[in-house]
Design a protein around this nucleic acid. Structure first.
Lengths: 130, 130
DNA sequence: CGTTTGCATCGACATTTATCAATGTATCAG
DNA sequence: CTGATACATTGATAAATGTCGATGCAAACG
């Protein structure tokens, strides 16, 4: 057993979909902390970009996003400390980040989303009937 | 055709699950705005309570939450303006709020959660295998 | 009518947050 | 070793946010 024990600190129960059971305060706090990591458009864009690739170089973000390099670094830190992303690799002076799919899944599950079969996909043909 | 045309302003595509397509900036902003509504423990607790009942009186929140009445009213306003909750009924001086399930589903879907068949349930036996 | 009750709004305040310039720190190229 | 590059950290600042007391307002009660 290599040190690969997956730690899942918080929240494995739905909270916000109809029928959800009452939440203990600390669970609500943990959820709020993760939602806060996604409460900024730049960070949503970062997560979205990471969702479309295996890993992305920080330099990619500093190029695309119209923000200073420290600001980008700040947003990456917030997402990292929320457990939504992690450093996947360092090559020379480059740093690559990747998504932590389990963390995103937990949030989706908390919101009542059924666990996706493969954790992948969910294409756009669910363009909603309304 | 009664006035029941459902308006779904924003975001009907996944954003943050592996394989998600690139997001237009305004979509990322709309998502961030809704996540921000859930970025506070009190508001998560409110949504959670609303998820467990058809409707809940404001007086119920002011009693349970350890906060002043104006503060509770503030949080309800934030959630309401985010489209996550709405006033369901007014009886005398009482005001009742209810969840807007479609709004929560949208967020779950954006995070890669498969659309729940009935919009209900998602029990706790998905206590994760880890 | 006046009073009470439940909730919203306003004004004030302390804390947090997003942002940038400046600086620190590895890593690579010469 | 020297310089350059990529990223992180620090410090500062303006804006946003959570909180509360005071006030406003509409509905019910007497």
């Amino acid at each position: 057993m290599s040190m690969q024990t997956k730690r899942l600190k918080v929240l494995e129960q739905p909270c916000c979909a109809p029928g959800a059971p009452p939440l203990r305060p600390e669970i609500a706090e943990g959820l709020a902390r993760r939602f806060k990591a996604l409460s900024d458009p730049t960070r949503v864009a970062i997560v979205n970009r990471l969702a479309g690739a295996d890993e992305v170089c920080v330099c990619d973000f500093t190029l695309r996003l119209q923000l200073s390099q420290p600001t980008v670094s700040h947003h990456l830190r917030v997402l990292r400390e929320a457990g939504l992303i992690e450093v996947s690799r360092k090559r020379g002076t480059w740093v690559f980040y990747r998504l932590v799919p389990e963390a995103v899944e937990q949030l989706a599950f908390a919101l009542g989303g059924a666990p996706t079969p493969e954790g992948v996909l969910a294409t756009a043909e669910r363009t909603v009937a309304w």
